[in-house]
Design a protein around this nucleic acid. Structure first.
Lengths: 255, 255
DNA sequence: CTGCACGATACCAAAACAATACCAAAAGGG
DNA sequence: CCCTTTTGGTATTGTTTTGGTATCGTGCAG
């Protein structure tokens, strides 16, 4: 554990109530990975001795982490970093690209372009992207497969102003956007189910009428501008989303 | 807080009574976003020292902001910029009950019980709930409707130890759990799509084979113990989830 | 002079903060 | 199996910080 909980470490935490300083110290250690899931913290008494605080103050600093599920306490045994199912990054997995998502599962990824270029926008694209009159839309449609099995159809629409050259996108759309400084910070997704029509079923290699997972996503820049409007269709029988959610503590909390 | 409340800052406020100058200064800081919801103001005594005013004058300047709800004061704690009402409730909506979800949309809610009682567990329930041998499972199955239209089938399973009396649940399951101090802080959901079988289609009043949104959820206590295992089936044509996501700051992984 | 808005001083009470002392469950060694 | 040690859990108390309030003085307009 080393130099983690020394009195000096407190100076850098920015002041405030002692128990909050400890809270921050531990929270950051967990977030940064210096404390791994399953790791044990020093006992409360040790922690108190190390930091020069009282034990109750240490407890108070730890309490919120326990309440929020980040730490687990077992009396007679110790305090441990909660075993993470998969961080809360999972919550973001809905927003991560298909590519990364599959890579994390250790599966190969192929993608085949169906359409890629500038087109006259459909009404729903004008609505979602807030297009001006006469403005064209960059459309990227492809079938994503894993290990040779087609899993999803992805149809991304972007304003011409944001992506003037859709043919330049060969791999990750997000990577291209990021290079251009257009990094979305927020997204709204709508998830529903629908029976696949003949065309989409054909693309996914299943029978028409099979259930598909339909996801519409609109991503926003920090400024509030829309970056992309994507409609995806996943095979319901071969793909599912895992999302981890966290609940806020009961009462109001002080900043 | 930096250079926000210096005596010099007052000169630019256009004169008039001192307490009004302070009032304007704070109001503008909030309006401009330099003070964010939840931020704490310096204590009244600090503020007085900073500005060179008396504390009562500071109070008077703050009073109107408090009265109008823009600031919140907690004695012993401090003065804070009023939090937005919406909170982070968005991300939690997936975890809130069907009841609350619909109420928020201003729609009526009816629910009809299909089954409610203690049963011998199915294998997947043993797996998900971590049941011991011989332990029974409390099962709650109902059809949720809104405005007379059936929208979802909800099948909740809980360990007998956690819910010994399933018949006591007449309304919100979460409310009952909360009363017993069993408040989940974390949940993992799996979302997929499936064609409805004859029985489920019948319950939802649609034709067999129609696409349904299937959601499996496992909720956990702070200790890591499983609280509930719920499988829901939503009509794909009549219901969708809206999820708002936030992206982590630049570092690490990125779509 | 009176009335009133303004501002400062002094004191009050609630809440948060922190420390001491003690309790009870669980782990571990004989 | 019992006993000891270690662990987290709790009750109690004192101190500090914070907003809340009562009171008084000042200056200006009527």
């Amino acid at each position: 554990m080393g130099e983690l909980f020394t009195p000096e470490a407190f100076e850098e935490t920015g002041g405030g109530p002692l128990y909050l300083q400890l809270h921050r110290l531990i929270a950051e250690a967990i977030a940064s990975g210096r404390l791994q899931p399953g790791d044990s913290l020093p006992s409360e008494r040790e922690l108190a001795a190390m930091t020069g605080l009282s034990r109750v103050t240490v407890r108070k600093g730890v309490a919120e982490l326990v309440a929020s599920g980040q730490l687990v306490q077992k009396r007679g045994s110790g305090t441990f970093v909660a075993p993470k199912v998969e961080k809360l990054e999972q919550a973001l997995s809905l927003l991560t690209s298909f590519t990364e998502d599959m890579a994390r599962r250790g599966r190969s990824v192929e993608s085949r372009w169906i359409a890629r270029g500038l087109h006259a926008p459909a009404p729903e694209e004008v609505m979602a992207l807030g297009l001006g009159v006469g403005e064209k839309v960059a459309r990227l449609e492809r079938v994503r497969s894993s290990d040779g099995v087609p899993l999803a159809i992805e149809r991304a629409s972007l304003s011409q102003a944001i992506l003037p050259d859709p043919d330049g996108v060969t791999d990750s759309l997000y990577a291209v956007l990021q290079d251009r400084g257009l990094r979305p910070v927020r997204a709204v997704q709508r998830i529903s189910a629908a029976n696949l029509n003949a065309k989409d079923a054909e693309l996914l290699g299943v029978s028409p009428g099979v259930a598909g997972l339909r996801i519409e996503r609109i991503s926003y820049l920090p400024s509030g501008k829309v970056v992309e409007f994507t409609r995806s269709l996943y095979r319901g029988d071969a793909y599912d989303f895992a999302v981890e959610l966290k609940l806020a503590p009961e009462g109001e909390r002080n900043p």
